[in-house]
Nucleic acid binder design. Structure first.
Length: 265
DNA sequence: ATGACTAATCGAATTAGA
């Protein structure tokens, strides 16, 4: 089972591009972020035609997340539990393939937080803290869980082309990185790092200044796995080709592949 | 010092992203 996360930067502006990738990568489950549209405006038919069940948590102009699956979805949750939030940044559901062990998948669009020293950064840290509390609750259930999304956190210096250039940015602040480490310390596995320790793995390249052409990127889109999900991880991929296309998102899809486990009931 | 890109908006510039 392949689980994807992708910040599409407007589903309406990106539809053709997104469908082209879906048709070649055929993810079983996909978490999309930054839809920038309300639920009614999401182009659900295009995905339903391709065999997906579509769940959205949209918002006008900003944010908005979707969870798409070729398997039935149960227990859909919209909004981060335990956190009063005006912004549509979280969706979660239980993916239940027939006769197979289910996997809980969460898709998050975590706050950017810039500029540091403002209420935007305070909101980022509060969001991360509520997310950590929710993860802790889910981990107690000992299920296979995938926490995918745009974390808006550069975990380590090797996750960006030029650490100096990101000093003072909310994505690379010590408090943001500490929040990410706390998630790992709860027992979550960074899927990409479990498979590939090399430098130069990026998931975002700014539209400005020829960042893509110069490969000045950052790794901020992550899939964090509960131990039960990590045990089933086979491989990961960062779909860089998506960034070189016409009218690309500034983020690329990241996928993790898991082996199926028979469900014994 | 500034703008660089892109998308959305009750617009003809501003806000937000990262």
């Amino acid at each position: 089972m392949t689980v994807a996360t992708w910040n599409v930067n407007s589903i309406k502006a990106r539809l053709e591009n997104v469908l082209a990738w879906f048709d070649e990568a055929k993810p079983d489950v996909a978490c999309l972020q930054e839809l920038k549209c309300v639920d009614e405006a999401f182009p659900r038919e295009a995905f339903e035609e391709r065999g997906y069940t579509v769940e959205t948590h949209g918002q006008k102009t900003y944010n908005g997340v979707a969870l798409l699956s070729r398997f039935p979805l149960e227990d859909v949750v919209r909004g981060l539990p335990g956190f009063q939030d005006e912004q549509a940044r979280y969706i979660e559901a239980l993916v239940a393939p027939k006769g197979m062990a289910p996997v809980r998948v969460a898709g998050a669009y975590m706050p950017n937080g810039n500029p540091v020293g403002t209420e935007k950064f305070t909101y980022k840290l509060a969001w991360l803290s509520a997310f950590e509390a929710h993860v802790k609750n889910l981990l107690a259930q000992e299920e296979a869980c995938v926490f995918a999304g745009d974390y808006n956190i550069i975990p380590e210096p090797r996750d960006c082309h030029d650490p100096k250039a990101w000093e003072g940015d909310a994505l690379f602040q010590p408090e943001s990185r500490a929040a990410y480490r706390r998630l790992l310390n709860l027992g979550l596995t960074d899927a990409v790092r479990a498979c590939d320790l090399s430098d130069g793995l990026y998931t975002f390249w700014d539209y400005q200044g020829g960042a893509w052409q110069k490969n000045r990127g950052i790794r901020i889109d992550h899939l964090l796995l509960s131990p039960q999900a990590a045990d089933r991880l086979d491989s990961v991929a960062i779909h860089k080709t998506a960034r070189g296309r016409e009218k690309p998102s500034d983020h690329v899809p990241v996928t993790a592949m898991f082996h199926y486990e028979t469900c014994i009931h």
